[in-house]
Simulated assay, not measured.
Amino acid sequence: MPTPGNGSIILVGVHLLRYKEYQLQDYSSWFLKQLNNTHNWERLKSCLVKSDDCNNLSRKYRTLKQYKQAKLTPIEAGCCRPPSECGYPAINASYYDLSFHPISSNKDCKVYKNSKAIKCYNCDSFKAGVAQYMKTEWRVVAIFNVVLFVVLSIIYFVGCCARRNAARSLSKV
């Protein structure tokens, strides 16, 4: 049976969910220190709350079946729904039946609310989703920077060779 967090299909009740669940302990202590810094987190969180990603899920996925088969982004998987281990049944893409008592001791189960302003914005799963998103984006930026460095190095090398050849040509005259 797959465990949450390994990216496999997870069986919850009789529903198959297709998303990866992210855990804070999967990230480096330095990264977590930056993410758990209250000032940094509040700025990040306010931007993400304003982005309305969670509130647009019900428009993006018209039916519960579409939602359950969707490949959610790390942020959608971390903040727009409670962790699957809570066992809350989904009513639609942005609303869960919270009348059930959580089957897990995960504190995120108690923090999650259906309110558009609350969702799981204070959950560790949200921080983990943001961490995964940033890790992915940073990787893209790092690759771009390496390619840019190589291109600039080649241009510099060609420029140096051209200058040396020009100096040699002038000295022969």
Rank of each mutant, 00 (worst) to 15 (best):
M1A: 14
P2W: 14
P2K: 13
G5E: 11
G5H: 08
G7N: 05
G13L: 08
G13C: 06
L17W: 15
K20I: 06
K20T: 15
Y22C: 05
L24Q: 09
D26Q: 07
D26A: 12
Y27C: 03
S28H: 08
W30G: 04
F31T: 09
F31Y: 13
L32N: 07
K33G: 04
K33H: 11
Q34D: 13
N37L: 09
T38L: 15
H39T: 14
S46C: 00
S46Y: 05
C47W: 09
L48N: 02
V49K: 12
S51N: 08
C54Y: 09
S58Y: 10
R59C: 03
R59T: 07
K60A: 01
Y61Q: 03
T63M: 07
T73V: 02
T73M: 01
P74V: 07
P74D: 04
I75H: 01
P82Y: 06
S84A: 14
A90C: 10
A93G: 02
A93H: 05
Y95A: 01
Y95R: 10
D97A: 04
F100I: 03
H101S: 12
P102V: 12
I103P: 00
N106K: 10
K110D: 10
K110M: 06
V111W: 04
V111P: 00
V111H: 06
K113F: 04
S115C: 08
A117T: 09
C120I: 01
D124N: 14
S125M: 03
S125C: 06
K127E: 04
Q132T: 05
Y133Q: 12
T136K: 11
R139F: 13
V140Y: 15
V140D: 08
F144E: 09
V146S: 05
V147A: 13
L148P: 00
F149C: 11
V150Q: 03
V151I: 15
F157C: 12
F157G: 03
A162L: 15
R163M: 11
A166F: 13
V173Y: 10
